[in-house]
Design a protein around this nucleic acid. Sequence first.
DNA 1: GGACATTTGGAGATTTATGTCCATAATAGG
DNA 2: CCTATTATGGACATAAATCTCCAAATGTCC
Lengths: 152, 152
Amino acid sequence: MLFSQTAEYALRAAVCLADRAGQPQTTQQIAEATRVPAGYLSKVLQALGRADLVTSQRGIGGGFLLARDADAISVLDVVAAVDPIQRIATCPLGLAGHGSNLCPLHRKLDDALASIEQAFASTSLAELLKTPGKIRPLCEVKITGDGANIAS
Amino acid sequence: MLFSQTAEYALRAAVCLADRAGQPQTTQQIAEATRVPAGYLSKVLQALGRADLVTSQRGIGGGFLLARDADAISVLDVVAAVDPIQRIATCPLGLAGHGSNLCPLHRKLDDALASIEQAFASTSLAELLKTPGKIRPLCEVKITGDGANIAS
DNA sequence: GGACATTTGGAGATTTATGTCCATAATAGG
DNA sequence: CCTATTATGGACATAAATCTCCAAATGTCC
């Protein structure tokens, strides 16, 4: 898998919270909506908390909320919180005398990383939600007024 | 790490073989040139063999050769042989009724995968070697006639 | 204060990726 | 045939990612 399972889970959770902004969601609720193992999701949410992407509140009526507006959180923010995209800055072979240049192979690989980073940085959670189409933004089954729109 | 260690190793080995085309390289030679643990490299080379990207020959004078010309092997071929880029074809949540559509999140992720796949598919090993610049194609130290060119 | 709900954090289990080692098979050369 | 060289394949060791579980700590409500 190119993206880690953890990153995938974090994104699902973040989109879920964005979709239900203002209403604190418990770990259980998010777990059910996103189909992520609850115990593990707990860890993922903690990581998002440490990255100041979500806030948490204990006790009745508690749960998790996005720390900022959904259009101020990028996909990259979420991914970076749990599984940072590690660019190739220096020669992976550890050879001396290479300066800041990379050989064509690693230049190519790093270019690929850069393009992903760029794509993720330029997409906010809000954009994922407001994308038009029949498929619901978050990957969950949802019924809207004009018919049953089922998400992927 | 976004790309697996194994994929990185496979690419190094492939570029090494492309750089020394026609001369069978033993596992040991490739291991030294690419700084990959010899024992593990052996497994990686076996995988490349199963994918018909390299041929092997036992005994004295034996070793590994590219099975085709370097311009007929893409970066994607090599990566796919050891760690296939798994596109998102269906809903990761396993929800029914999603058809072949993906929600915006997974569409975005799959688009990123597609762009990488495209970049890798359109780059051959030969291109990595003939890229101009001071840095040697393969990531190894090499001395050429017109001065010491050290790779990354 | 008591009962309940919820996150927190740590310990450990399980699975997968990575890496090591060695006996065996195949090949070349004398 | 014998020896040296090399890949092959399997068993195993280690490390990292993923996942589970539970005893706290913190919060709300009565």
